[in-house]
Each structure stands twice: as structure tokens, then as C-alpha cells.
């Protein structure tokens, strides 16, 4: 929303710059409305001038550990990076975001792959335990899609950052389904025939990034946890929704095309404030899940050459092409610049 003011600021400052020698008509002519991206526009097309340019020929190891959501992207990064830097050995250990975080804290990993943000408690624990600076950057986004039983007449899911989808009664309300404003489907789909059908939430296990996002999208800023039927895989979750008339679940976009379920768009109010943990430099909607890399940087600012080159690779056209190969969404130019700022990298311009 703040970007709305940018053309106005531009016009005023242009007058300042030019001493008023150029009229408003011409100023407006130079700043037509930003082009609306075409449907299915290739998100990589804008990144080509951000090619990976190796600065160094490092040797050593880079150890990545964490979320299975990022496993395949990490494997592509390791493969592509090793072709260019054969003296760097990349290892990947996958499990969960929790496991990756633990490995980073214990010094067993150089990069933690995280499919959810680092929590305040984890940051506080880091400050106490580590002499290094923690930097968390976004490496990709995953699009999440809500699914329901195909017989459900609902067409969309309204959402707000404060109350989520299910509209909890009050902040801090008890973490039970009874405390929610919407417990049965008639409150969401408007059909009296569904007043006796409870909303049954299906999700991944606690600790998974998808579950973290699901809970937050369902309950908004109240952040309460719901009674949830847990599934080990997204395939199981999709099958459970297909067999449950009252089912509601959240899956990665790549699984939402599976038969037997109906996908629902999330309707986000146009003036919704960004989420408290919104990604720096990004104005993505909350149905795009950021996927993070957490790294420990010595407080003197120096990072090992191989880790720096690896992160340069990830935040380049090549690294983002790797992300797209596993169905994830690559970063935009602005998002890449913002991540480099977080890393404290001054950029050549």
C-alpha cells in the first residue's frame, strides 16, 4: 500500500531535482501505472540479469540441514554449485525445520533449511547460546492451497490477518474448537444444509512448516492451536479430505490438483496490513509461504568463502531456477536485493 505514494513522491522530488523546469504532464508520462503481470507470467524472466558471478574459487564444505520442503531445492543448489566449485563439498541432511535449527545451534550445520520463520523464543535462545550473529533470509516461496470435499458448496475462504479464517472469539481464547466463531460449515459456506457438518481440520504434524502456516491462517493473530487430524504426508492429507465431507486442509500447490478434492482461493482484504513477520522487501500475500535459510555469521562480519559463494548462488538466477525446478516460486529482484541487505552485503552498483 505504501507504494501507492511512490509516484507522488517521485513527482514532487522531480520538481525538486529539476528546479521545476519540467511540468507535471511529462512527469506523469514517465511513470505510467506499473504493468500488471500477465497470468502465468514467467517469474524467472526478470532475474536473468542477476546471473551468478563467482567472485572466488573456494574450497571446503557447506553443510545444509532442515526442512524436507527445501530438500530438493537444496539438492539442486548443491549439484549446480559443485559443478562450478568442485573443491566445495555440499552435504544435505533433511528432516524438519526443528532439526535444522538444532543442527545450526549445535554447529553441525552451516545453513538451516526452514519452512517456517524462526520464533522469538528461538531467537532469544540463540542470543544466549551463540557468539555469532543469526541471519535469516528467504530463499523461495511455496504457494499453499486450501482444499475441501468436492461436495462442499463453498467457493472461497475470506481471511483477515486479525481473525484468520475461522474467526476466534477473542485473542488468547482457549485453544479449542468451541472457542471459534465458525465451528460448522454453514458459517463459512452459507448453506443451511451444512449446519450440522462440523469443520474438521486436517493438517501435517506439529513442527512442520505447513502446519505452522495452517494454524496461523486459520486463527489469525490469535495464534491458537486447533484440534487437528494429523497426517504424515500431503498425499494422505488429500485422501483424508476426499473422504471427509467436513474436511478442511492446507497443502502445497503442487498437490492441490489431485483428484477428489476442491481447491479454494483465499480472499485477502485489499487494505490488509502486512503480517508481523512479513518478509523484508516483499509484498506477497499470506498464501505464499516463505522458505528460509538461517545462517550463523561471525560478529566481525566475515563468512567463510564457500558459504558466501553458496548464498550468492542461491540468490542468483541459477539458484532461483533451481527453486522453480521443484515447483517453488522464485524470489523477485527486489526480494533478492532485500535478502542481500539482511546478509549485510554491500552490492556493487
Amino acid at each position: 500500500m505504501k507504494n501507492f505514494f511512490r509516484p507522488l513522491f517521485a513527482a514532487v522530488s522531480w520538481l525538486l531535482v529539476t528546479g521545476g523546469g519540467i511540468g507535471f504532464g511529462q512527469v506523469q508520462a514517465v511513470d505510467p501505472p506499473a504493468a500488471v503481470p500477465a497470468v502465468n507470467a514467467n517469474p524467472l524472466a526478470d532475474l536473468f540479469t542477476m546471473a551468478y558471478q563467482p567472485k572466488d574459487t573456494p574450497a571446503g564444505a557447506v553443510r545444509l540441514a532442515g526442512s524436507s520442503t527445501l530438500q530438493q531445492a537444496a539438492a539442486h543448489w548443491a549439484h549446480g554449485f559443485h559443478r562450478l566449485h568442485p573443491d566445495v563439498e555440499c552435504s544435505i541432511e533433511t528432516g524438519s525445520s526443528e532439526a535444522g535449527w538444532k543442527s545450526l545451534i549445535e554447529g553441525k550445520a552451516d545453513v538451516a533449511l526452514m519452512s517456517r520463520p524462526v520464533t522469538d523464543a528461538e531467537k532469544a535462545a540463540w542470543e544466549k547460546q551463540s557468539a555469532k550473529r543469526l541471519v535469516v533470509v528467504v530463499a523461495a516461496f511455496g504457494r499453499l492451497v486450501w482444499i475441501v470435499h468436492p461436495s462442499n458448496p463453498i467457493a472461497e475462504l475470506p481471511w483477515s490477518p486479525e481473525t484468520g479464517i475461522l474467526r476466534p472469539a477473542a485473542k488468547g481464547a482457549a485453544a479449542t474448537a468451541d472457542s471459534l466463531a465458525a465451528t460448522h460449515w454453514d458459517r463459512l459456506n452459507g448453506s443451511a444444509d451444512w449446519k450440522d457438518v462440523p469443520i474438521r481440520v486436517h493438517g501435517r504434524a506439529l513442527g512442520s512448516g505447513t502446519r505452522w502456516h495452517m494454524d496461523r491462517l486459520l486463527t489469525g493473530a490469535t495464534s491458537c492451536q486447533l484440534a487437528t487430524t494429523e497426517h504424515k504426508t500431503e498425499a494422505e492429507l488429500v485422501e483424508a479430505i476426499a473422504a471427509d465431507k467436513g474436511g478442511l486442509g492446507l497443502v502445497g500447490d503442487e498437490h492441490a490438483h489431485w483428484p477428489g478434492v476442491k481447491r479454494l482461493p483465499l480472499v485477502i482484504p485489499a487494505n490488509a496490513a502486512p503480517l508481523a513477520d512479513a518478509v523484508a522487501g516483499s509484498d506477497r500475500t499470506p498464501d505464499c509461504r516463505p522458505l528460509f535459510l538461517a545462517v550463523a555469521v561471525p560478529k566481525d562480519g566475515s563468512m567463510s568463502p564457500q558459504l558466501r559463494e553458496m548464498l550468492e548462488y542461491v540468490l542468483s538466477y541459477s539458484g532461483q531456477l533451481d527453486v522453480a525446478k521443484d515447483g517453488l516460486l522464485p524470489l523477485s529482484r527486489g526480494e533478492i536485493h532485500a535478502q542481500k541487505d539482511l546478509l549485510g552485503w554491500s552490492m556493487a552498483r
Binding site: 511512490r6 513522491f9 522531480w14 514517465v30 502486512p274 509484498d283 529482484r333 527486489g334 541487505d341
Partner: peptide, 25 residues
């Protein structure tokens, strides 16, 4: 602060790259 009248750096939720803006303006 700006290039040809257009803000650069972090503007709201987005980054406007100074290199891109120089090339444009």
C-alpha cells in the same frame, strides 16, 4: 534518496534497486 525523481532503496514493502532505476531514467 532518489534517481531521476524516483525513490530508491526500501520503499514500503519493496526494494527499488538503484542500478535498475539509473538504467530506466
Amino acid at each position: 534518496i532518489n534517481v531521476g525523481g524516483y525513490q530508491v532503496g526500501m520503499v514500503g514493502d519493496r526494494v527499488y534497486d538503484v542500478g535498475d532505476e539509473v538504467a530506466k531514467h
